[in-house]
Design a protein around this nucleic acid. Structure first.
Lengths: 129, 129
DNA sequence: GCACTATACATTGTTATGCGAGGTATATGG
DNA sequence: CCATATACCTCGCATAACAATGTATAGTGC
């Protein structure tokens, strides 16, 4: 019983498009979370939640990590925890760091382009309200 | 392994993830392009190409416009051109303006979150290379 | 040693959507 | 009329996020 969106009329739920907004940036975010050192799956989710506004489901992060690993952007190693299930720690490879730098560059450029586009909108907001 | 991409080695095609990066921002961009006045379909594409870094296909923009129109975010009117095919001009409704302001806000917040995440990466870039 | 709980990794199916490819309508020029 | 240019529209495929669900490991209470 997940979605069940009734009210088609004045449906201004920000969630809908905000979710779309994030698409595609997740891969970059996952790489970025590993910049300072290795983390394991669930830890990455928590890291992103704290250091940005991204909230990923487990069903989201593991496919991303596998994808990135397949592409050689990161490596993984099993590490036994003091208690509970062993953890799979992910680390950036050199290729991963390189890629992340490129992505970061593109992100800045892309984000500046959009900001420029939104400038008139933001201006109006400050004035009119 | 459904990919069939040749050169698996140092394959750093920016296109692949850059395309993903943009996902979800297109709706906002389409609304933003109409902020200063009405435009028709192909004109929106050209506008975004010039005022940001977004390049949309026709098969992308028309579904978006129809979606936004269905949601009451914009209206359309046929206008005969001096020559050639008549044009369908799109204009923002009040709801569209309101939505765009909200989206712009969310965008800024989202983009700041990601920028924060990327700060260490960008720092390294300046220093090491 | 058996339930119960917590932690962690993994997969499957649904849904949304960008976009390439192809199609239609209107007008102009040779 | 046929080629070309402009403009709008639609179908289908591939991709990707994510909810739901399942499995493995280990600690706790009894």
């Amino acid at each position: 019983m997940a979605n069940m969106r009734a009210t088609p009329a004045d449906d201004d739920q920000p969630d809908r498009w905000e979710a779309q907004l994030r698409k595609g940036a997740l891969e970059m975010a996952a790489l970025a979370s590993l910049w300072k050192g290795r983390l394991y799956g669930l830890e990455i989710i928590r890291f992103l939640e704290r250091h940005s506004r991204l909230v990923l489901a487990e069903g989201t992060i593991y496919p991303i990590l596998n994808r990135l690993k397949t592409e050689g952007m990161l490596t993984s190693e099993w590490v036994e925890a003091e208690a509970g299930h062993p953890r799979k720690y992910y680390s950036l490879t050199d290729a991963g760091r390189k890629r992340l730098r490129l992505m970061a560059e593109a992100w800045v450029s892309f984000s500046q382009g959009l900001s420029q586009l939104l400038e008139p909108v933001m201006d109006t907001k400050e004035i009119s309200q």
